[in-house]
Design a protein around this nucleic acid. Structure first.
Length: 366
DNA sequence: TTCCGGGATC
DNA sequence: GATCCCGGAA
């Protein structure tokens, strides 16, 4: 079985692999970028980001010299923004501690921020030919089916079995192609639902296929629906500019610029919540009405609520984490993706279809 | 509209 | 064990 898998996988891969830009490079830095960028991200949605990222930061020195804001801007829309910050830190470490050379071993790569077992294995095998495994979700699904691994593949005994089997199968020659082949098979043939077993190069090497129940693997576990959290944001206008605040450097949407506002605690009204957050920023004004709705689901919580137009009055002195943004800044800054549409729609009259929010003290100046 | 899949960190 | 997003499929 050991060699049989690789022997079937490699010819299949040469024939069927998708022609993707990140597969055309041998530059270890580019491979590292692509692997971080594809963490928890589908290949098709990651590719345009990869191309833009490499155009923007062609070398690790360019990345290391960039500001965190510039890196975040290139990441805007991809999600899991901690990845961007970690990749930036990794770039600085490569330049600062490794003479600008990407570490050539699994162990060396594993030390970099944002590089876990998967990414270290992928870069070590693909860029440097080290015989290590790289088991992403696609590869895990293939192995779970071939070897009929039951249980939760992310932890415990099932995880151990998966990793043990995965490591034992990596061939000494071209482990990078082998790892990519396994992942590619999972992505395109051994799909989560309705796998294309009739065209699979593994055929009856696969235990689940022989049993006639490939979809039984890997086992799925119920994911409880995320808690719904009320939010309210303010679209504050003054002299054609809009008020933005920088989100904290840790946590949700870390480091992105956003409309002021956020989660609402308890029974506070949306209007009151907005007045409160603007008061904290030293901004005075009046809430005019609702200009849109937010309904956005993250990994672990769901935001639902409203965006309110606010007319600011009087002068304001803003700190470093707040600014009045004109069109130029709106274009240049990394923004919360689902806030951007409110800014680009411009001054937007109170949108129809959002329903009228009855907030009796709405128009009060504050 | 809901569901689901895809790694790392602390 | 809890935190961190998005887009395509259903």
């Amino acid at each position: 079985m050991e060699d049989a898998l690789a022997e079937r996988l490699l010819p299949w891969y040469r024939e069927h692999r998708r022609d993707l830009s990140f597969r055309r490079t041998k530059d270890p830095y580019a491979i590292l970028v692509s692997e971080v960028l594809l963490q928890r991200t589908r290949v098709v949605s990651g590719v345009p980001y990869f191309e833009r990222f490499m155009a923007r930061f062609p070398t690790v020195v360019d990345l290391a010299n960039a500001s965190e804001e510039q890196v975040l801007k290139a990441w805007e829309g991809l999600g899991f923004y901690g990845r961007a910050r970690n990749l930036h830190r990794a770039g600085k470490a490569i330049v600062g501690d490794h003479s600008g050379q990407v570490p050539r071993t699994f162990a060396g790569l594993r030390e970099l921020p944002g590089i876990g077992d998967y990414t270290a294995g992928a870069v070590a095998s693909i860029a440097f030919g080290e015989r290590v495994s790289a088991i992403d979700g696609n590869a895990a699904r293939v192995l779970a089916r071939v070897f009929r691994i039951l249980g939760d593949l992310t932890r415990g005994e099932a995880r151990k079995r998966l990793v043990g089997i995965g490591e034992s199968l990596v061939p000494p020659s071209d482990p990078g192609a082998y790892n990519q082949a396994l992942m590619e098979l999972g992505a395109t043939v051994c799909r989560p639902r309705t796998p294309l077993c009739t065209t699979c190069p593994l055929g009856s090497l696969c235990g689940a296929y022989r049993d006639g129940n490939p979809e039984r693997y890997p086992q799925r576990f119920v994911r409880p629906p995320p808690p719904v959290i009320r939010v309210a944001f303010a679209l504050v206008e003054r002299k054609g500019k809009v008020l933005l605040v920088r989100r904290p450097s840790g946590g949700l949407l870390a480091g992105l610029w956003a409309l002021p506002g956020g989660e609402i605690i308890g029974k506070t009204s949306a209007g009151a919540a907005i007045r409160e957050s603007l008061k904290d920023l030293g901004v005075r004004g009046r809430v005019l009405g609702v200009s849109g709705r937010v309904d956005h689901t993250f990994s672990h919580r769901r935001w639902t609520g409203t965006v309110h137009r606010v007319r600011a009055s009087g002068p304001t002195r803003l700190g470093g984490d707040a600014l009045w943004a004109g069109p130029k800044e709106i274009q240049r800054l990394p923004l919360v993706p689902f806030h951007r549409r409110f800014l680009e729609r411009g001054r937007g009259d109170d949108a129809a279809g959002t329903g009228t929010i009855r907030d009796l003290d709405m128009g009060e100046p504050f």
